[in-house]
Amino acid sequence: MRILFTSLASYGHLYPLLPLAVAARAAGHDVVYATAPDFHPTLEKAGLETAAAGLTLQEAFGRLFAGDTRGRHEIPEAELNEAIGKGFGRLLPTEFMTDLAPVLAERKPDLVVYEVGNPGGAFAAHRAGIPAMAHGFGRVSPGGLVEHIAKRIGELAAELGLTGDSRLFWGHPFVDICPPSVQAPEFVAGARRVPLRPVGWSEPGELPSGIEGRDRSRPLVYLTLGTTGASQAHLLTSALRGLAALDVDVLVATGPSVDVEALGEVPSNVRLEAWVPQSELLPHVDLVAHHGGSGTTLGAFAAGVPQLVLPQGADQFTNADAVVEAGAGAKLLGDELTTDAVRETASRLLSDSTVADVVRALAAEVAGMPSPEEVVAQLPQYV
Rank of each mutant, 00 (worst) to 15 (best):
G54K: 04
K45M: 14
L246E: 00
P380S: 12
T296R: 05
A328C: 12
F317I: 06
L220I: 14
E365Y: 13
V270N: 03
A105E: 15
A52K: 06
V285C: 08
T6N: 12
T50G: 08
M133H: 05
G313P: 02
T98Q: 12
F169T: 00
L350W: 05
R343L: 03
Y222H: 14
A24M: 08
R63I: 13
A150L: 07
G329R: 00
V199W: 00
P16F: 04
A300N: 02
P283M: 08
A303C: 09
A274H: 14
G89H: 02
L111W: 02
F137R: 00
A363D: 08
E273G: 01
G47R: 07
V103D: 00
D335G: 09
L156Y: 12
P370G: 15
V103L: 08
Y15N: 15
A23P: 10
G313N: 13
A124R: 04
F39T: 04
G87V: 06
A253Q: 15
S166I: 07
G120N: 05
A274C: 02
K108G: 03
S371T: 15
F123L: 11
V199P: 00
T163F: 02
A125K: 04
F65W: 15
L91Y: 02
P16T: 07
I211P: 04
Q58K: 14
G117M: 10
R214H: 15
A262F: 07
A330L: 00
F5C: 12
L332G: 00
V359C: 09
G200V: 10
